[in-house]
Amino acid sequence: MDRLVFLLATGLARGLVVALFALSLVIVWRAARLVNFAQAAVATVAVFAAFAVTGATGSFWAGLAAALLTGAAVNAAVERGLVRRVPQGSPLPGMIVAIGLVMVLQSALGIAFGPRHRPMAAPFDERPFVVGGVPLLSPYDLFVLTVALALVGLLAWLFNGTTLGLQLRASAAAPEVSRLLGVRVPRMVTLGWALSGAVAALAALLLVPTELGLNAHSADLLFVHAFTVAVLGGLDSPTGALIGGVLVGVLVSLVTGYLGAGVAPLAVLALLTLVLLVRPAGIFAAAQVRAA
């Protein structure tokens, strides 16, 4: 029982980070009807910026700000510079360009910084509170939890409760009509990309201190998990991303704990396959929403 509680708590902490990253994929999808395969590489660039700034100033928060800004700026540049020039109509060229971008960014980071893993410290204590002999969430996990929930709330408010959100949604769903109604569609799309880049950077920044360290490939697995989560929850649903993230996090934790570390990637693949075959658009997506 203790073991189950421990694994659930570990999975929750991990899953929230994945959920955040999945959320960033949802944002791009909402803005541009596109899965950004380069999101992990962009996020890693942002974490490198954070690393540099934290190293120079000694402040985690300055690094966090740098990561958010870099993530937003790089993604906005990607949208303006590349995605906008991609032939429209088929998702294929967009995906191929994104894959090219992954290769360029990761190899450039590799050339600039070498293969070393750079240790990054977490801003909060990572020692968990022990309740009844079972180590549960640490202050750092609680920080991640708070950030994730706040962000989901913020995004829900942004998309559903503000004019800007309405414009964002309208631009993605019906660009021509939106333009006729005076929405500056290109600007909205760029804004969506920037927002998504910032969220992805945040997720990667929260992940790295819990792993070996910062490296050009630090966020690769995060992307695969987040993609699974986004599919699980439906690419259109922030709530779906949150719940899906926790599900995947807990699944990986339970499988690793009970069946062994090697089985976890297979479990994720099995889950993804199952969901795609049974409900290709995700569990939480309403049928009409995706038709746009």
Binding site: D2, R3, F6, L7, T10, R14, P135, T210, E211, L212, L221, V252, S253, T256, G257, G260, A261, G262, A264, P265
Partner: peptide, 20 residues
Amino acid sequence: HESYSTSNQDVTAQMGALQA
């Protein structure tokens, strides 16, 4: 006895098992 796979850098579950 616990194991890890080099592709996954999260070893919390395994450390938890050993501690338990």
